[in-house]
Amino acid sequence: MSASPGDRRRRSAGGRYARQSPVGRLAGKAALITGAASGIGLATVRRFTEEGARVLAVDLDAGRTAHAVAGYRGAVAVGTDIRDSSQVDAAYDRAFTEFGRLDTAVNAAGVSGAQADLCDLTDEDFADVVAVNLAGTFYSVRAAVRLMRRMSPAGGSIVNVSSVGALANFPLPAMYPASKAGVLGLTRAVAALVASDGIRVNAVAPGATDTPMLPQDEPVRRAVVDLGVLRRAASAEEIAHTILFLASDESAFYTGQTLSPNGGYVMH
């Protein structure tokens, strides 16, 4: 059967259908994104604002964050230490003050920690990584749920950034995959707890990504990248595309799931 004139108008190059809406996928929505000054967090701020969202961009240094998101229409920078639950709560209060609502929270803040032999790692090395990657994510998820429950109707989407290191046996400093695996457990548990509130909670577990956290020593970098069958690192923007999908209504039937754009490190 031949395509109708309307169908033909909607087709783009290569036979795919182009999105026709004059507004973005997140138009009218408000988001809070941690780790927003660089890497995956910054790329996500950019994609969200391009899709019409207003964004509270959260990172440790307010000035650096403001500089990073300058020019992104709808982005407001806030300095927050996510290891401190009172600061996290204050950031969410600021989001509600700025936007009057919260539709999405993206927890992209993370650290890799000390690069050392297992037996040389200190208690502080372990605790510092867990404080940012796991406790900080928990504080943010808890604050997001509180606000999302206040909306009428209640609801929203939370996206937690984990790592392919939580899914595979990579020789990484122990506290990093441990903390990122904890993020996956947190994601599943909270997804079950808040489903009746209309809140969806999912995770993204990226493989090697071209951010400051990827090893800068070229032989080490090459060895890490070559673990994936695509034999390259993802761009931060490629990971942000997956986060955008989970934040948007296109993923309305996803909750408690982990999407892993990892270049073939792990295959399911």
Score class of each variant (00 low, 15 high):
residue 2 S to F: 00
residue 5 P to F: 04
residue 7 D to F: 11
residue 19 R to F: 12
residue 22 P to V: 09
residue 31 A to R: 09
residue 34 T to G: 05
residue 35 G to K: 00
residue 35 G to C: 00
residue 36 A to N: 01
residue 39 G to V: 03
residue 41 G to C: 07
residue 42 L to S: 04
residue 43 A to K: 02
residue 46 R to Y: 08
residue 47 R to S: 12
residue 48 F to Y: 14
residue 51 E to D: 11
residue 62 A to F: 00
residue 71 G to I: 10
residue 72 Y to C: 11
residue 75 A to F: 10
residue 83 R to D: 00
residue 83 R to Y: 13
residue 89 D to M: 05
residue 92 Y to C: 09
residue 92 Y to G: 04
residue 95 A to T: 09
residue 100 G to N: 12
residue 109 A to L: 04
residue 110 G to K: 00
residue 110 G to A: 14
residue 111 V to M: 07
residue 113 G to D: 00
residue 118 L to I: 14
residue 118 L to S: 14
residue 120 D to A: 14
residue 121 L to E: 06
residue 123 D to F: 15
residue 125 D to T: 05
residue 126 F to Q: 06
residue 128 D to K: 12
residue 131 A to V: 00
residue 132 V to Y: 06
residue 139 Y to M: 07
residue 140 S to A: 15
residue 147 L to A: 13
residue 148 M to H: 03
residue 149 R to F: 08
residue 159 V to N: 07
residue 159 V to D: 02
residue 162 S to H: 01
residue 167 L to K: 09
residue 167 L to I: 11
residue 183 V to D: 03
residue 189 A to R: 13
residue 189 A to E: 14
residue 190 V to Y: 05
residue 194 V to N: 01
residue 203 A to I: 03
residue 204 V to Y: 00
residue 204 V to Q: 00
residue 207 G to S: 07
residue 208 A to L: 02
residue 209 T to M: 07
residue 213 M to W: 02
residue 219 P to T: 10
residue 219 P to R: 09
residue 227 L to N: 10
residue 228 G to F: 04
residue 235 S to E: 11
residue 253 F to Q: 12
residue 255 T to V: 01
residue 257 Q to R: 13
residue 259 L to D: 04
residue 261 P to S: 10
residue 262 N to V: 05
residue 268 H to N: 15
